[in-house]
Design a protein around this nucleic acid. Sequence first.
DNA 1: AATTCGGGGGA
DNA 2: TCCCCAGAATT
Length: 345
Amino acid sequence: MNFSKEITHWYFQNKRDLPWRKTKDPYRIWLSEIMLQQTRVAQGLPYYQKFTEEFPTVYDLAKAEESHVLKLWQGLGYYSRARNLHFTAKDIVNNYNGEFPNTYKALLKLKGVGDYTASAIASICFDEIEPVVDGNVYRVLARYFDIDIPINSTEGIKTFKKLAFEVIDPKDPANFNQAIMEFGAVQCKPQSPNCTICPLASSCLGLKNKRVGILPVKLKKTKVKNRWFNYLVVVSTQEQTLLEERKGKGIWQGLYQFPLLETTKEVENIEKYQAEIEEIINIKDFSITQFNKKIKVHKLSHQHLHTTFWIVETANSLKNGISLQEIRKYPVPILIGNFIEEFNF
DNA sequence: AATTCGGGGGA
DNA sequence: TCCCCAGAATT
């Protein structure tokens, strides 16, 4: 049996029972693909359930408030995916008569849909012969053919896409694409793959040359930056607090947070920042205490956020205050969400 | 071509 | 700790 036949055969015997494998509805396939970008199946699954329940069709998603979409997305990360998801839902309803385009080329025009996702939808929903190349496919191909070109280099991206075209089963691209990804996720996994039970072991060049452990090769990533976040949790006597929306560039666009004082290092004397704090929260009369004496380091892939929460008590009424009853309706970074649960106002 | 977008899980 | 995850958009 050749490579693609063996992969597909393995798939039919070993595939997991996942909800998006029960449909060819482009809306649901699109939804699942966006959610699973850089995200494990186990992490994305509950979000897929929530979204399909709350927004059964693209029309339901299109008419939702963006903050509602972000709230349901809360905790999944890479929030531009959620904003682009909502934008494209409206785009489909307004400019495509509610129907997804049915070719790879046309799908690529949708915001948030790149090469991988366009290939996935085109092949799974419309049986187009277009190979998907995700992290799993890079790994399977690099190992099986023993290729050490860095997968995140320009040459690597081009080489592996070409190779994927050569191995795809033209008679069943939908199942082949899902098969090679599933194979990568379950059998040819990143750490300690069990090659002794692999159906492709006899023809795998990486295994033959004892290079499975170093493949695939990836260019090194940039180092993380450190930032110091001081959140100002205003507590008024009227059961209110302040939240602000993150706008502009950077992390967590469109999500809410407590007013933020960002510093270049750990704050030791909060009194030194009295004037800045007054300006940020627009209150002069307050007392301030530190909630967590130990700074928590919230680790993102490219930033380490050294965060602490300051409780700011005031008798003033808040101009743009929100009631504490409403606080859980706002989409917030998981960091803020955890604090809200812990502090419990 | 390189960087920037989260958060969680496994070794 | 470090790496990776059904990548895309921006710089």
